[in-house]
Design a protein around this nucleic acid. Structure first.
Length: 636
DNA sequence: TTAGGGTTAG
């Protein structure tokens, strides 16, 4: 890209930068304060040219302001080869331009260019290592080969006398951590204890977290002579990564209580933990911290809030946060689209997706998971087919197992079971048995006993340790009232040593989380809970509710089946909700498994008879029950 | 110049 100067400007008095700092300041004044885009840097370049300042002294500062390229430069593409042209026209007597070229170019160019760079300094190793770490951290192959690359750079640094530099050592420590080479990382760390700062400690901490060694990370965290907000957020992120969500939130609370400045990463990870738990009070606590600390609701925090509110049952609040965001990235859109889908608001999700496309944004594989899931939940067959085609043909997104999962579910639920089977059989990748499980589930809802039995037996043969297959097959038999067969399946299941995983329900009340199991007598208020449940049952019976026992798999008499159903964890949670929540406020429950057919009927009836709203998050979706109806339209 | 984070079907 050439910047010709008009003659009138060429005669204008020229600004002479006495020092590099002046040049840096002037270029800085032409750019946004943070994270400029290539386009913005080019605009600043044009203005410099107009001022007659597009010189070797100024250009390196433009290079320094450029974002990293994600693809190797193409010479015919002005914006991607722009860093190279800036570099060529820069002052080659300093390492500054070389270092920023290393930062901007994607792997493997920095590694290739490094030996031939006209000027280098100890910092150059840091830039090179950061480029390698970024590449590996973005999910590209790591392991012994990459670690070897690190030792190669390490050797070069030793030869250049830069290996003692704190920044270089930190970058090396981080690099080994990214490769997963914990031993090499630890050697770097242990070698020169005198050359350490908080970044060194944080690099090791993150190495342990990456290697899923959260215990080692915690031990190191306790041992650290200095900590900053990055140390805290790394530990919180580590616990979230390992699924220790309650510990993650406890560490976040400690961070707040100790008065450590809460940063964006800590908030985002704590929100993610609350979202995964589905516990609204915890999520609200994190949101309150954001407000109290007067933190800016950035794009990342906004997206995390949308996700949290959606996953904690407040899809309307999620939408409010989403609509109020001044800038939204694809993460925010994805969270909102997936959130609407999970709440059974398929048409809203599809509408939002259309708006997303109309705004000219590029959908990712996850956007399509969300929109296909929305179609499947709301029975939008034609739309689902159209988006699946669009995904492949227009957006070049390779269908992954998740997308097939949505499509198989979409077709199966709509009764197009044979088409679903055809789709699986025509797949280019080996189908996950889970897809057959989805078909099996469709056989159950559609009452296709023969096909279901065939697929169920095949699945049990394929994965004998998977309890879900036995459960589904048994419930297909149960629905057809074939109790002998139900007994057979259960016998087979227990002889193979598998058993239905225990279901539980959670309820938040007064800052505590209450967990219930089926027939649970552990709760301190058990007597009251069972009394309340008895009262609810009597009122429902008066209103004409008759239990449907077909979802109970035990080979016991009808009366006992009724009893087993009566004490499902969800009902205990509802009864407890009647005791501890205010009259008129909704009862929110989080379950690990899918809600059973009869509990679903029971809960709907409760909302009608007692005029209470019940919101259940089960293993995969939300049920908003009100006035005897559910947002899932009994379609789940 | 180095360290930390969010969205995913059944």
């Amino acid at each position: 890209m050439q910047f010709e100067q008009p003659p009138s400007v060429r005669r204008a008095p020229t600004f002479h930068a006495r020092r590099d700092a002046d040049a840096c300041q002037l270029v800085g004044a032409l750019l946004p304060r943070r994270a400029a885009t290539t386009r913005q840097v080019q605009q600043a370049h044009a203005r410099l040219a107009v001022l007659g300042l597009a010189t070797a002294r100024f250009l390196p500062h433009l290079l320094a302001a450029l974002p990293r390229l994600s693809h190797p430069p193409q010479l015919e593409d002005a914006s991607s080869s722009y860093p190279l042209s800036l570099f060529r026209r820069s002052n080659s007597s300093s390492a500054f331009a070389s270092n920023h070229l290393l930062r901007v170019l994607p792997h493997p160019l920095p590694l290739r260019l490094f030996p031939g760079l006209p000027r280098r300094n100890p910092h150059s190793f840091t830039f090179l290592l950061a480029s390698l770490s970024n590449h590996l951290g973005a999910g590209h192959a790591s392991g012994p080969a990459s670690s070897f690359l690190g030792s190669h750079v390490h050797a070069l640094a030793v030869k250049a006398g830069a290996a003692g530099d704190l920044y270089v050592r930190n970058a090396l420590t981080h690099f080994y951590g990214v490769c997963g080479d914990v031993v090499a990382m630890r050697m770097m760390f242990d070698e020169l204890p005198c050359v350490r700062d908080v970044v060194t400690w944080n690099a090791v901490l993150s190495g342990y977290v990456r290697a899923s060694m959260v215990r080692a990370a915690r031990a190191l965290f306790e041992e650290m002579p200095m900590r900053d907000e990055v140390s805290w957020s790394t530990v919180i992120g580590g616990y979230v990564k390992e699924g220790e969500l309650d510990v993650a939130l406890q560490v976040f609370k400690d961070m707040v209580e100790k008065g450590v400045r809460v940063n964006e990463a800590a908030v985002v990870t704590a929100l993610s933990a609350s979202a995964q738990l589905g516990l609204l009070e915890l999520g609200r606590f994190v949101h309150q911290v954001v407000r109290r600390e007067e933190m800016k609701v950035s794009v990342n925090i906004g997206a995390a809030l949308v996700d949290m509110y959606a996953k904690c049952g407040c899809v309307a609040v999620a939408r409010k946060v989403f609509d109020g965001m001044s800038r939204r990235d694809v993460f925010a859109w994805n969270a909102m689209i997936c959130g609407l889908a999970a709440h059974g608001l398929g048409r809203d999700a599809v509408e939002l997706f259309e708006q997303f496309l109309a705004d000219g944004l590029c959908p990712t594989n996850i956007t399509f998971v969300g929109v296909l899931n929305a179609c499947s939940r709301s029975g939008l067959v034609a739309e689902g087919r159209r988006y699946f085609k669009l995904m492949v043909e227009k957006y070049n997104v390779e269908p992954e197992m998740e997308h097939y999962g949505c499509m198989v579910d979409l077709l199966g639920r709509a009764g197009l079971v044979l088409e679903a089977i055809e789709l699986i059989e025509g797949m280019l990748i080996a189908p996950d048995p889970v897809l057959w499980g989805t078909v099996l589930s469709a056989c159950k809802t559609r009452g296709l006993v023969d096909l279901g039995v065939k697929i169920g037996n095949k699945l049990i043969e394929l994965e004998p340790a998977h309890d879900g297959h036995y459960v589904l097959l048994a419930s297909i038999y149960a629905k057809a009232k074939k109790w002998d067969e139900v007994r057979e399946v259960r016998k087979l299941m227990s002889s193979r040593g598998t058993s239905k995983s225990a279901g539980w329900s959670l309820m938040e009340a007064q800052g505590n989380v209450h967990k219930f199991l089926v027939g649970d007598m552990e709760h301190k208020d058990s007597v009251q809970i069972y009394n309340m449940l008895g009262m609810i049952n009597r009122r429902l019976a008066d209103a004409g509710y008759v239990p449907d026992v077909s979802s109970v798999l035990h080979d016991i008499g009808d009366e006992e089946k009724v009893h087993a159903i009566k004490v499902h964890s969800e009902r205990l949670a509802i009864a407890y909700g009647f005791i501890v929540t205010e009259v008129g406020s909704p009862i929110r429950i989080v379950k690990n498994l899918q809600v059973c057919g009869d509990c679903h009927e029971f809960s709907k009836m409760v909302t009608k008879v007692f005029n209470r709203e019940i919101i259940v998050r089960d293993g995969s979706r939300f049920h908003h029950m009100k006035e005897g109806r559910c947002s899932c339209h009994d379609y789940w």
